[in-house]
Simulated scan of single mutants.
Amino acid sequence: MDTRRLPHLVELDRLGSMRAVADALGTSTSVVSQQIAALAREVGATLVEPDGRRVRLTPAGRRLAEHGRRIVAAVDAARDDLDPAAEPSGTVRVAGFASAIRRSLIPIVADLAVRHPGLRLTFHEQQPAESLALLEADAADLALVYDYDLAPAAPMPPSVRAGRRLWEVRWGLGVPDDGAVPVGAATSAEVLAAYADRAFIGDSRNDADERVLRLLGAAAGFDLHVTHEADSLDLVDDLVLAGLGVGLLPTNRPTRDGIRVLDLPDPPVRLRCRPVVRRGRETWPPLAAVLGALR
């Protein structure tokens, strides 16, 4: 059934004459008659019957008109929802790592609620690979992912597109603040070499930290041991404070007493955050509004 024919039947039910329908739809009575006749053939039922010099809907016609009103309304709503110029309304499902949600999304929620009352955000804390999997499965509309410049992410699947970098943060080596400072450490590799006999801490849900550490360890000429894995930065702090290992920590995060974050000067370690969406979805008004606020 061609749903484009339904407005002719719906209007006939409302207005009661072919001429009135033609005037309302800006067409001719013959076109209205042809569209309704074609619709009758498609559904296999008689939709109109003579009523003196006019026509009226049959019981089947009235029933289809009832469905038609809902279908036409749904099509109009879908068209409005997808119109790039429409007021954003709907739920944007965001999957991303905790720092990105805290830094990029939570600060814009209140402003978005004022500017677009019909817009709603839901958050799912996930690591980059998990966020991309949700995006590909259409279980998320926006993914906030990260990689390190020293450990670039693998190429993304063709179904998604990464936006421009939102921000980047320098990372250093979190170590016990015991007064010992690497002497003569001019490079990042030399900083790590001063802790070659320590256990190192990786990330339990993403191998990017470990790849950065192993790259710098190899440059310093030693094979470091990633003994512990932690997804929480607070747990990394706890492990460092307990003397159980050293690991990467962001330099812009307040440090706890007893921890020192050593600069990794050359090459620097930078974490980069990017938004990722499914191709073709960028113009959906609710998502476009969120992306605009992020930028």
Results as ranks from 00 to 15, higher is better:
H8A: 00
D13W: 06
S17R: 14
M18H: 08
V21C: 06
A24S: 15
S30V: 12
S30N: 09
A40L: 00
G44L: 02
A45Q: 14
V48P: 07
G52H: 07
R53V: 07
R54Q: 14
P59K: 05
P59V: 05
R63L: 14
A65T: 02
E66D: 14
E66C: 07
H67K: 12
H67D: 14
R70K: 11
I71K: 02
V75W: 00
V75I: 15
D76K: 00
A77E: 14
L82T: 11
A86I: 00
S89V: 06
G90T: 08
V92P: 03
S99F: 10
A100L: 01
S104G: 07
I106W: 06
I108H: 05
I108V: 14
I108D: 11
A113T: 11
A113V: 08
P117G: 10
P117Y: 14
G118D: 09
L119S: 10
L121N: 12
F123A: 09
Q126S: 15
A129T: 12
E130T: 08
S131C: 14
S131Y: 06
L132F: 12
L135A: 01
L135E: 08
A139N: 07
A139L: 14
L142M: 08
V145N: 05
Y146Q: 05
D147P: 00
D149V: 12
L150R: 08
A151S: 09
A154C: 02
P158D: 05
L166D: 01
W171C: 00
W171N: 13
V181R: 15
T187I: 04
E190P: 01
V191G: 05
V191R: 07
L192Q: 01
A194I: 09
A196D: 10
G202A: 12
R205D: 13
D209A: 09
E210H: 05
V212P: 09
L213K: 08
L215P: 10
A220N: 13
G221W: 13
F222K: 10
D223Q: 15
V226H: 11
H228V: 02
D234S: 12
D234K: 10
D234Q: 12
D238A: 15
A242V: 01
L244N: 01
D257T: 13
V261K: 14
L262A: 12
D263E: 15
D263N: 13
P265A: 11
D266M: 05
D266T: 10
P268A: 15
L271M: 13
C273H: 14
V277Q: 04
R279F: 03
G280F: 03
P285K: 10
P286G: 03
G292R: 10
A293D: 01
L294Y: 03
